[in-house]
Design a protein around this nucleic acid. Sequence first.
DNA 1: TCACAGTGACTTTTT
DNA 2: GTCACTGTGA
Length: 751
Amino acid sequence: MPDRGPLSGYLSVLNPEQLEAVRHEGAPLLILAGAGSGKTRVITTKIAYLIRERGVEPESILAVTFTNKAAREMAERAAAMEPRAERAVLRTFHSFGSWFLRRNGALLGLDSKFVIYDDDDSTTLLGSIMEDAPRAQAAKAAHAIARAKDYFLSPDDPGLSVIDHREEFRTWYRQYEEKLRAIGNVDFGDLIKRPTELLREHPEVRARFRQRFRVVLVDEYQDSNVAQFELLKELCGPETYLCVVGDDDQSIYRFRGAEVRNILDFPDRFPGTTVIRLERNYRSTSFILQVAGSVVDRNQGRLGKTLTAERGSGKKPTLAFLRDQDEEASFCAELVERSATSGVRYSDWAILYRTNAQSLGFETEFLHRRIPYRVVGSLKFYEREEVKDALALLAFSLNPRDEVAFRRVANKPARGIGAATLERIVAEAARGAPSPDELEDAVLPGDLAAAARRLSPSLSSKARAGVGEFLRVVETGAALLSGGSSAGAGAAKKGRSAEGGLSAGEGLSEFVVRVAIDSGLSDYHRAQDEIAGTQRVANLQELANAASLYPASVEGLVEFLEHIELDRASAAEEASEDSVTLITLHNTKGLEFRRVVMTGLEQGVFPREDKKDDELEEERRLFYVGATRAMDELYLCSCAQRRLYGRTMPTEPSLFLREIDEGAVRVVGRSPSASMGLSAPPAHARGAGASADGLWRVGGRVFHDDYGYGQILSVRESGEGPVVVARFESGRDFRFLPRYQSNSFMRIGDE
DNA sequence: TCACAGTGACTTTTT
DNA sequence: GTCACTGTGA
């Protein structure tokens, strides 16, 4: 190990703990990295260091993260330090699993062209097993199966009863697995579970991978689940250098199967572990850390650490008690607008909320006020009906055994294949008795296209015509893809595209457009557009545009479909012009903003429902994650009432607000505990009117940086614009000339 | 087989 | 307030 001596530039910027973490070698390392402690810097530097100074081959480094965004960022930063780092394998757990299975899945009888089913597809598949069950029930059971896979539980595992103790659940799970295997596709959980099983059952593959990856790094380790832990154990032999980085206080994916014990027990599971703590926070000022820490401190099961702020005390966070979500939205908008006049960029701001549904109010308000914003996550584009239809057709053209895709599009647009006919075809395929001539064509059992063809003569004339049409569509598509889309085919497409309302672009895009038009999906959804004024054809066009990045081949299609399942958020979100970020608390992990507003701090919203024990602790960690995103300023909003299900309900302030250290925040607004004379302005002040521009009205609510929350008592015009007198929570009245106070004095709504 | 209207249920958080 | 599902009638 190169000790002492002047450090090269990229190492000299590290603090002693970070440097120790980068230089550590031997066996295993657990880095407990508090929020904002330079965790990503340590990992990327470590990669560069290993390659540059320890002679490690880039190809032998595997680094896994949980989100694609994190993986990309890591790759970029590592490559900036050391170009050879580009050759390292930097992926999300799931994308690594998929990569692994496409190469080695044959050992499990898995075709390399498999498609990844999302939750919706899994529900459809399970629904075909749970006869007559309403879809909601199938969705619930599908969810339970997903959890079972997170915990590495198979249908015959005794431990399965922890997930769902019903014997019928075990049966559904078993049948679901059988069917999924017969179809030849995988679900999310399989991307972790099946590689692990394969590595266990095939020592030669395990040896090969252990030979290949000498260094394994895991980021956000606190969010790993049991299956991922099992996978790591298979990947890491005695010779492998394993380094995991995480923060138990930021474990927020328990609901998805994340197991905090993974990080808490790491030193026990991997004997000889070195633990290095990074507790210097370079992101936030100390009052912000105090607020975040005082809440998460209440948690029991945690390793415990103390962050120290390297940036000084800064400004106290503001806790604002507001009336309702409308006032909350205008409060946020005012904060942003006000700061914008003094040169703060929109992109310095992030509005955080617990559930995606809460974004709507902010969007409406920001749109109204022309404040640019972007909504991160919740991109439901690939869940849209028309998009899923097109994707199902594409998937079916890859795999005629795909029952889920078949059920979705066989009769869409309606071609006379009703439920009865559909079930007959599915049953026929399951019976799987190919005729002799089909056997010669190597027809796979379960081939739905073949079954439909077989059954066709015995169907009613209407159904027979429909089946014929569907088969024609599928065959045309398959031929187009495998036969190479020649220039001639391209020209033919262009001719038809105008009529379908879609236009073909580069690469795979032509194929997508062709299939959408030829199948009638394009016409079908265009008709829907005309009825409902929707944008479905435009969405199909967007899907086709996204496909243009991929080659027009079977491989290109497989890649495209995988990308959609594993990395659906990226496309629209990269729009990097100056705008406010609207984002769920969960989605903020790994991000930072100069100014952060956490909204909806009310019992039932955040924390959600009456969460108790473990779940409440997870909500606290979520609070911690949200608050520690803020660099300079943090605002917390709590509303006295909130609309839910279209009904306005009174709400209680969040439990977390009581847990915050008194003195670490500045409270504005009528705190429910200390509601001071703000209920109604004195009678003499009523009716005094409004300013000439109509902006300032008696009774209107205002907020001032120094005095907090208040209500307007009187308004009159002067030579310098309106003069406003307001009474604040302290009970004192102050006079303002808003013209000169635009930065510290603002409206937050009318009466 | 399909279109429509009325009725219920429902909201975390995501790879 | 929204969405999905159910039953009815054509």
